[in-house]
Amino acid sequence: MSIGEVLNFPINMVEVPDHNFVRCEFEDKTYVNWDNNSGQTFTDDYFRKGLTPTSSSVFTF
């Protein structure tokens, strides 16, 4: 978050039940949900279903 702030990159933290991720917003109003735990992107629908990378098989050690 702080790196995005210094570089003036539009990053926001999003909180969902039992999880947080960052959303990178672009000038054309599109955005990417990026999960720093898994290093992957996820759709809004993924999180709406109550899934999180740490509670699904997407995140493995």
Results as ranks from 00 to 15, higher is better:
30 T>Q: 10
47 F>E: 02
31 Y>W: 08
36 N>H: 04
37 N>L: 13
41 T>S: 10
2 S>C: 07
26 F>I: 03
50 G>T: 05
25 E>W: 02
23 R>Y: 10
40 Q>V: 04
2 S>T: 13
5 E>I: 09
15 E>Y: 05
9 F>A: 15
26 F>T: 01
39 G>F: 06
19 H>S: 00
17 P>Q: 06
29 K>S: 11
20 N>Y: 06
54 T>L: 05
35 D>K: 00
13 M>A: 09
36 N>Q: 15
32 V>E: 09
20 N>I: 03
50 G>M: 08
23 R>H: 04
5 E>K: 02
58 V>D: 14
38 S>F: 01
12 N>A: 04
58 V>E: 13
38 S>M: 03
24 C>V: 11
33 N>S: 05
60 T>P: 15
46 Y>E: 04
13 M>F: 14
3 I>Q: 10
13 M>H: 04
1 M>T: 11
51 L>Y: 03
33 N>R: 00
15 E>Q: 15
12 N>I: 07
20 N>H: 12
58 V>M: 10
58 V>W: 07
47 F>I: 00
61 F>E: 10
37 N>C: 15
12 N>G: 14
19 H>R: 03
11 I>Q: 13
6 V>P: 13
48 R>C: 05
17 P>N: 00
59 F>Y: 11
56 S>P: 12
51 L>W: 02
21 F>L: 14
27 E>A: 05
52 T>E: 05
20 N>E: 10
50 G>P: 12
58 V>H: 14
13 M>W: 08
